[in-house]
Design a binder for these strands. Structure first.
Lengths: 192, 192
DNA sequence: CCTACCGATCGGTAGG
DNA sequence: CCTACCGATCGGTAGG
């Protein structure tokens, strides 16, 4: 049973994702909650505070998903599972993922800078996954690791625009992984 | 020598990209143009009309870039050049590319629907590039073409967030292409 | 959770 | 391109 506060954060998440932070008014949120505008201020200090709450929850979800990837899996397998984990979070919480990826820039300082740092930490974890695979010799030696990270993060960060809410994404994550691993030409799967 | 109208579209492009469409006021645009707010209405009918102009120009730029890819190049080579072309447009016009990719959803109907259709056409051209390559046997036969298109479009559409304005992007485009082609594992470049 | 209200700002217009 | 203004809406508050 969700509290009214949780309902408000959820509704704000949905409307911020649909209409944008600045395109959503407190009156819009009130209407969606079925109350008068002034009544919302017993559930939040401000509209901005809702954005802070949503972006923090988003960051926590993505980090938690990566945390669940087993340390003892192979380096390539860990990348595959991380991709599944990330897309899984997006599918489970499209609105929160959208606000996390697109609306965070409307955070006031100092939260905005703090968010950027947090986001960089998340991307660092992806770099680390690639770096480990490279160190263990699982990647080709002439690989541009920076380009590879950028490519996988592009796939991850663009996902909120096309993922169907609640859809199963593991298979698609595996297909992405397969292409990243062996490419679209795929000499690996053909006799030389 | 740019006209005042062109200056306004350029300024609007920059501010819409930085602050978002709803986060930018006519007063902001006036200040950046060095005039009073009311004076802008001799250069545009409305704020919305500026958004229409920017998104249309963006669409035209991306299509023109694809048009410049030679028909007689090989199917794989055409994909490489298309990637260069797309990233080149983003680098040359980051603001317009940002509005094109992120702010178009604030278009009023019927322009919003028209834009979506236009965008789908652009994505279809990418699908076509991949399809041709597949038909000519340049891609592995077990490839999920849908996933491959989604991956390359993710790289293209996320680019506005990290590309340095005016930077040279051909080399990076080629690195992306190389990873898409042969993967990060790269058995293709190793002896079997 | 409501009513009633605040000053500020919104996009846009009239008349020059 | 300016001044002066319009009604509507903004986020937020007071008092109950």
């Amino acid at each position: 049973m969700a509290t009214r506060r949780e309902e408000l954060v959820s509704v704000a998440s949905r409307l911020f994702a649909e209409r944008g932070y600045h395109g959503t008014s407190m009156a819009d949120l009130a209407e969606a909650m079925g109350v008068q505008k002034g009544s919302l201020y017993s559930l939040t200090q401000s509209k901005q505070e809702l954005l802070v709450a949503i972006t923090r929850e988003g960051a926590a979800s993505f980090h938690a998903a990566l945390d669940a990837v087993p340390d003892d899996a192979g380096p390539l397998e860990r990348i595959r599972l991380a991709l599944r984990a990330h897309l899984g979070v997006v599918a489970a919480q499209v609105s929160a993922a959208t606000v996390f990826t697109r609306e965070w820039r409307f955070l006031d300082e100092p939260e905005r800078s703090a968010f950027r740092a947090e986001r960089r930490r998340y991307e660092e974890r992806w770099s680390e996954l690639l770096r480990e695979a490279a160190e263990r010799g699982a990647l080709r030696s002439d690989l541009d690791a920076g380009a590879a990270v950028l490519l996988v993060l592009s796939a991850a960060n663009w996902a909120y625009t096309w993922i169907v809410p609640g859809a199963e994404t593991d298979e698609l994550a595996d297909r992405f992984f397969s292409i990243l691993l062996d490419g679209v030409r795929g000499y690996a799967t053909r006799p030389a």
